[in-house]
Write a protein that binds this DNA or RNA. Sequence first.
DNA 1: TTCGTAGTTCGCCGAGCGTCGTACTTCGAT
DNA 2: ATCGAAGTACGACGCTCGGCGAACTACGAA
Lengths: 125, 125
Amino acid sequence: MTESATSTPLPEPATGEIRLTAVLHALADPVRLQIVRQLAEGHEDMACIAFSLPVTKSTTTHHFRVLREAGVIRQHRRGTSRVSTLRTADLEQAVPGLLDRVLAAAQTEALRHPVDPPSDAPTME
Amino acid sequence: MTESATSTPLPEPATGEIRLTAVLHALADPVRLQIVRQLAEGHEDMACIAFSLPVTKSTTTHHFRVLREAGVIRQHRRGTSRVSTLRTADLEQAVPGLLDRVLAAAQTEALRHPVDPPSDAPTME
DNA sequence: TTCGTAGTTCGCCGAGCGTCGTACTTCGAT
DNA sequence: ATCGAAGTACGACGCTCGGCGAACTACGAA
């Protein structure tokens, strides 16, 4: 094997193939948004296990796959771990400014509502 | 009835109750994104029937409801029609810059891909 | 080599979404 | 009062999604 086993990028869309609706859908899930927020918070590349997510391993794999197939993150292997990186530059080119605004809004909302209620809209219905 | 029948706003979340994930989810659907784009394209208030959407009346009602309950649009009656308006200012306060970036990205993508394939990722799988 | 850790894959389940058709309501016009 | 046009409400359908557990793979360490 002439390939280096420590850098095997998993299949992902090219920058030009990143679709707006796919990105929006990927970011619309609370768990995935939490992953993206943690990735953006300085830790540029983290193993999946490092994220303290309220779901099981297989569900975690699922969410990372959705993010990767939407073009939001890049994944490659490092030893027995899977390292994830935000595709900041690619996203900036495909959907300029979107990631920053989403992250800023998520931060603001997190400060207002420390715990995220499932889906209650108190002032409506 | 002392209420004026020509301005009956339908139930909608207050500005502070607009949730990021709800907005992202509302904008993640191609039909709803098309509605928002048409609303942003100058026609500030349009009747539902004025949108040439590839779905039936009842589905149209459903999509307008999702957009309204997410806080993206406001709806009120005018005669036998339903007039919809983008809540631009409220969105700017709740999720600053998000709407503009989504609209810009949608415009760019529409120029690249005139017709939107269902969900094919040609360079992947 | 054996073992443990980290992820993946698969099938399954329940819930929700998008879609439709069919009533039903509401309003303006006749 | 009657009719038609614009929307809404409701139920049904198929599909997707998010969640899980169990079995499997891949890699490092002992």
